[in-house]
Design a protein around this nucleic acid. Structure first.
Length: 622
DNA sequence: TTAGGGTTAG
């Protein structure tokens, strides 16, 4: 065997840098360091292998007299997957400007990977131009890399254009496009792409499923999610860790926590995503105790928690009113698990205290937090609304103003607190602030899935194709609900003074969730569950309304709002009205005022909404 | 000799 062949064989079996150095020394002694295949092999090992060394690779590269494309590819690839992807771009620039070597499809794939990792948008576009000039714009792998790269920058339109122009798309390209939409929050587009994929008879695999299931989770599209689950089972993909994790999250986010638990229990292997999905699932359903139990099991399974774990735990504690436990886990984060709480964790802590009415403590935390973040003050302001605390509410608002972060939503929160105190001047100030600063409210919307179609309703929606039917049904539903305890928001009368405020004028009557529920009642079979996904928090009026509807129409209604889940059944809600405690008392007061007019109706109302204590207290029952 | 796709929070 020739010396060259012997060295190449040695390099083939090389598995450590130490051994490689010995081979390199032998290469130099043999005068073969300019032998191109040997030099390339040495470089490739150092640049790519886990036991290689990029520093050594650079040394070898610079010793090359005239590196060919293969050598450039090795060094660019090595840096693209390293902790310093920018160096991959530096080498690519050198290759293009200072060498005679021409980039090929591999070069473009590697440099695009580097662009994606550091979100180098301009460079990505420049490389895209070179791809076209070099005639590689029909290459399925390079184009898939471009789709991924543009997706990482959030340039979904360009990613879609690249995808659409591809002369042939394989499964990986379709999956990249679906993931792009899913990751950018364009979930309906992800599902539409899947439909297009199906119409072109492309088979799907586990990767496709994960993106689609994730989109179903965000949309609350349980019916489609169940179909995906069925497909996974029939094709043996439900054993995949990724698919299982996505399913747990989907079922939890679509309100079927029991199904999520079932999948979780059956998973053979569980990783941090599995545990977190379950803990977060318990958390957003307000089941703090179970989130804690799950967390303890996770530790027993020797899985180390991460910041997401604690968000789930804190969310559960906050919504179940487990103040002490929440504080304990917040402290454990840093003391035991060496995780530095982020602003979101502080947000949970402020919410935990604020929701429980411990506003002084919540204020102390926001004031002392190194995170001078408007989000924390906004959470505090929200708690002040629940507990009608003007003083701390004003402090929060002032801080928001100082931070230049006041929104129309904040003004409305404080205006509502003032209105509750009959403070007309305060309300007027908020009105002025909204008008003078031209602040806009976030329009509320709700989704409802009917069959395989997700319908979106916005507040006062007249654009939906079935608008006439929806409004007609809603009038009937409100009428029916009024026999079961729905009397309209207690704050409406006190907010009369707000009625002149243009931006606050929107009636609670046509909030998006009411329109979606009316549509759901009209379009689904008696007794079936109705599930709604909403972008904002459910307001107090809608909360009362849905409770009454659940009993009037004998429907289980599950609402996922911005913060948590509400399971309405038989006139009760799973949140136990934890966040509307103050509102409940006022509402009872209003009902008692009605008593003089129609005592039997008031009794009926109390019965159906389950306020037995109130009934007894007011002598309406034994 | 070298390439492309996946899940939790926000």
């Amino acid at each position: 065997m020739s010396n060259e062949k012997a060295i190449l064989a040695l390099l083939q079996g090389c598995n450590s840098l130490k051994r490689l150095r010995k081979i390199h020394a032998h290469v130099i002694v043999s005068g073969l360091h300019h032998h191109v295949p040997i030099a390339n092999k040495l470089l490739n090992f150092c640049a790519i292998s886990v036991s290689g060394s990029l520093a050594y690779a650079q040394l070898l590269f610079h010793q090359m007299e005239c590196p060919q494309t293969e050598a450039w590819n090795s060094i660019i690839r090595g840096f693209a997957q390293s902790s310093s992807p920018i160096d991959a771009i530096v080498f690519y620039n050198q290759m293009v400007c200072d060498s005679f070597s021409i980039p090929d499809t591999f070069t473009f794939s590697f440099v695009l990977k580097a662009c994606e990792r550091i979100k180098a948008e301009r460079k990505c576009k420049e490389v895209h131009g070179s791809v076209i000039r070099c005639g590689y714009d029909a290459d399925v792998i390079v184009c898939t890399n471009l789709v991924k790269c543009y997706s990482a920058m959030g340039s979904v339109c360009i990613a879609r254009q690249v995808f659409d122009k591809m002369p042939a798309r394989d499964l990986v390209a379709w999956n990249a496009m679906i993931s792009c939409f899913s990751q950018q929050g364009l979930h309906q587009e992800a599902l539409q792409t899947y439909n297009q994929m199906r119409s072109e008879n492309v088979d799907i695999d586990g990767f496709t499923l994960v993106g689609l299931i994730s989109s179903c989770a965000h949309l609350g599209a349980l019916n489609i999610g169940v179909q995906m689950h069925r497909f996974a089972r029939e094709n043996g993909l439900d054993q995949s860790l990724y698919v299982g994790n996505a399913l747990i999250d989907m079922y939890a986010k679509c309100g079927s926590l029991d199904q999520a638990i079932l999948i979780f229990d059956r998973m053979q292997r569980k990783d941090i995503f599995t545990w977190n999905s379950m803990i977060v699932g318990y958390g957003v359903h307000g089941r703090g105790s179970e989130a804690i139990y799950c967390f303890q099991q996770m530790l027993e399974a020797r899985i180390q928690p991460n910041p997401v774990t604690f968000l789930g735990l804190l969310c559960g504690c906050s919504h179940q009113g487990l103040v002490q436990e929440g504080v304990k886990y917040f402290n454990l984060m840093s003391s035991k698990f060496r995780l530095k709480p982020e602003v979101k964790h502080y947000g949970c802590l402020v919410d935990l205290y604020g929701r429980a009415g411990k506003l002084d403590k919540a204020l102390e935390i926001v004031s002392n937090s190194s995170h001078n973040d408007s989000v924390l003050w906004r959470i505090l302001l929200g708690s002040c609304k629940i507990h009608k605390n003007v003083t701390i509410g004003e402090i929060a608002m002032n801080r928001l103003s100082e931070l230049g972060a006041t929104s129309a939503g904040d003004c409305i929160l404080l205006a509502t607190i003032y209105a509750g105190e009959k403070d007309k001047a305060g309300v007027a100030r908020m009105r002025k602030m909204i008008k003078s600063q031209g602040k806009k409210t976030t329009p509320g919307w709700s989704w409802i899935e009917i069959g395989e179609q997700v319908h979106k309703f916005v507040v006062d929606d007249k654009s939906h194709r079935y608008s006439v039917e929806v409004y007609e049904k809603l009038r009937e539903v409100i009428h029916q609900a009024s026999f079961f305890g729905y009397v309209g928001d207690e704050s409406i009368s006190s907010l009369d003074m707000l009625s002149t405020m243009e931006t606050l004028k929107t009636s609670c009557t046509y909030h998006s969730e009411k329109l979606a529920i009316a549509f759901g009642l009209a379009r689904t079979a008696d007794g079936t569950q109705i599930r709604i996904v909403k972008n904002l928090r459910v307001c107090r009026d809608c909360h009362s309304f849905i409770k009454a509807v659940s009993v009037a129409f004998n429907r289980e209604i599950i609402v996922r709002d911005r913060v948590r889940f509400h399971h309405f059944k038989g006139g009760e809600c799973s949140c136990n009205d934890y966040w509307v405690m103050v509102g409940r008392i006022i509402m009872v007061g209003q009902l008692v005022q009605m008593k003089t007019k129609d005592a039997s109706r008031v009794k009926n109302v109390f019965f159906h909404v389950g306020w037995r204590k109130e009934e007894r207290k007011r002598g309406l029952c034994a």
